[in-house]
């Protein structure tokens, strides 16, 4: 654990120099601990793969003092052990049909596997939330099976539809909103990942476990899934 100030009211705690499951688990456990013990001083928290960024309320506490307090808890933080079993798996239904899997052709070409096999691999892996960012509710999920890992598009798309499930290298993610993006699209979920009106704002939190479940087109539509007009144009020309 390495604590470094970054500006007048912000510090970052590094837990590792490499991305590891154990580190993601650790961070997921440290956040509620810090909120419980030091929550009244904390304005904002940003967990990521190997670090936690913390913004403090300078009116209540100074940087040296908060660093001392976190350091005081070091042995407690070190003792927060990994309890994977304590997480439920969140099941995300995904329609993997070709009209929404815009990059099916890229994926089959790159992996030399039939698309059915790619779907099977993608939907039988349990993923972990390593970070949330880029856009509200955009969760970086790892790790994708190396057999279906694929680099990002060389030119990002201007518009990726909301709910698109996509792969980039050894990570997979769901686009919560229509946005630009360069990940390779494998399917689409009808589930709303983020809803500003909902009490449970975001479906995921750091460290959560996710599994994708293939569904039919009928099920996708009955769950509120939307097929865009551009989907039908793409099915014939499935480009790269």
């Amino acid at each position: 654990m390495n604590i470094q100030p970054v500006n007048e009211n912000t510090l970052i705690i590094y837990f590792s120099e490499s991305i590891e499951t154990a580190v993601a688990d650790k961070i997921a456990r440290v956040i509620p601990f810090l909120r419980q013990h030091l929550g009244s001083y904390i304005i904002d928290v940003i967990p990521s793969y190997t670090s936690i960024l913390i913004t403090i309320d300078l009116i209540k506490i100074g940087l040296r003092e908060i660093i001392n307090k976190i350091t005081y808890f070091k042995s407690y933080i070190d003792a927060l052990t990994i309890v994977n079993e304590s997480y439920n798996e969140i099941i995300i239904p995904v329609y993997y049909g070709l009209e929404v899997a815009w990059d099916a052709e890229n994926l089959t070409r790159h992996s030399s596997l039939p698309f059915e096999k790619i779907i099977e691999i993608h939907s039988t892996t349990v993923y972990r939330v390593y970070a949330i960012g880029f856009a509200p509710g955009f969760a970086y999920l790892g790790n994708t099976d190396p057999r279906i890992a694929i680099p990002r598009q060389s030119t990002p798309r201007m518009k990726v539809p909301a709910g698109s499930v996509a792969i980039a290298d050894q990570q997979t993610a769901i686009y919560p909103r229509e946005s630009p993006g360069g990940w390779q699209i494998i399917g689409r979920t009808p589930i709303e990942l983020i809803d500003y009106q909902r009490e449970n704002l975001c479906l995921f939190e750091m460290g959560a476990l996710i599994r994708f479940q293939p569904i039919t087109k009928e099920k996708f539509i009955s769950l509120g899934g939307i097929l865009n007009t551009s989907d039908s144009n793409l099915i014939s020309s499935t480009k790269g």
Binding site: V6, N7, T10, I12, E17, S18, I19, I46, P47, S48, Y49, T50, S51, I52, L53, T55, A131, G133, Y140
Partner: peptide, 10 residues
Amino acid sequence: IISEGIALGA
């Protein structure tokens, strides 16, 4: 670098 939280003014 490994993606990390961005503070104001970074």
